[in-house]
């Protein structure tokens, strides 16, 4: 059974639409979103009908928690003043353009979703199982730390998003952590595509093992990024954001990146 997992959407309803089509065409039977529906892009309210129409269950991200609870900022966890300025522009735009009904809906989203597939205990969270806005970067997270999180959460497969860059790590006892990437913006690698994750769960019934097996596929997704850029300009969103959509390089919110992830970017 294939399941599609989408990370932060950041108002990018065009990528969400493309991801739904792509994942469905690849055989995904269920779709989940790991939170941060708003931020960065244009027209927040265009995301919600797509989630509804395709029965996409969502985890509450820090953005959704903020918008849903009428908070003053996005709780993104940035530490640099310039990063916070840009984050605030996105946040105020998203807040003002999200309907009351959609804010109410975001408020009641769960901080995690759990289910079991062929004996694998799957946990969906936004940042980490213990904190919605905790950054788990590939180069800044030890494997034994992830083992501890998996022990504490009593999960075999932990899926998160939040950082904006996909990665995965095998843990002890056949467990695994996967950052599913984000649909909202490209990955700071000079390419304009975004990423989502497909997991194919298989019950072979062979060898007397208790757990089924699964394979993780990171899927690069092209979408109409030029249209997104036009719409962002029309909504007077910052040129720096538009540049990211058109070039694939992050221009803001860089201070939270570890050196290793930062080095491969342009800025």
């Amino acid at each position: 059974m294939k399941i599609g997992f989408f990370g932060g959407i950041y108002n990018n309803y065009l990528a969400l639409e493309a991801a739904i089509t792509d994942a469905t065409a690849r055989g995904a039977e269920r779709l989940y979103c790991l939170g941060d529906l708003g931020a960065f892009g244009p027209h927040p309210d265009r995301v919600f009908p797509l989630l509804d129409e395709h029965n996409i269950s969502c985890v509450q991200g820090n953005y959704d928690n903020s918008i849903g609870n009428d908070l003053q900022d996005c709780q993104c966890g940035y530490t640099d003043p310039r990063d916070n300025e840009f984050a605030q522009i996105s946040y105020e735009y998203t807040y003002e353009n999200t309907s009351q009904a959609n804010r109410d809906w975001m408020r009641q989203l769960p901080p995690e979703i759990r289910f079991e597939v062929y004996g694998t205990r799957v946990l969906l969270c936004h940042g980490s199982p213990r904190k919605t806005n905790e950054f788990l970067w590939e180069s800044a997270t030890s494997t034994h730390f992830l083992n501890r999180l998996a022990d504490e959460a009593e999960a075999d497969l932990i899926l998160g998003t939040h950082t904006g860059i996909h990665w995965q790590r095998e843990l002890s006892g056949g467990r695994r952590f996967v950052n599913v990437g984000v649909l909202g913006r490209p990955e700071n690698d000079g390419a304009t595509n975004v990423w989502y994750t497909l997991i194919d769960f298989d019950w072979s019934g062979q060898g007397g093992t208790e757990l089924g097996e699964y394979s993780v596929e990171f899927v690069p997704l092209a979408y109409d990024h030029e249209r997104l850029a036009r719409e962002m300009r029309d909504e007077n969103l910052p040129d720096e954001f538009v540049e990211t959509v058109l070039t694939g390089w992050w221009t803001t919110c860089l201070e939270v990146l570890p050196g290793k992830e930062r080095r491969t970017g342009r800025f």
């Binding site: 709780q75 530490t79 939270v256």
Partner: peptide, 8 residues
């Protein structure tokens, strides 16, 4: 800054 713990 990459690891600053944050309130849930």
């Amino acid at each position: 800054p990459t690891s600053k713990p944050m309130e849930k």
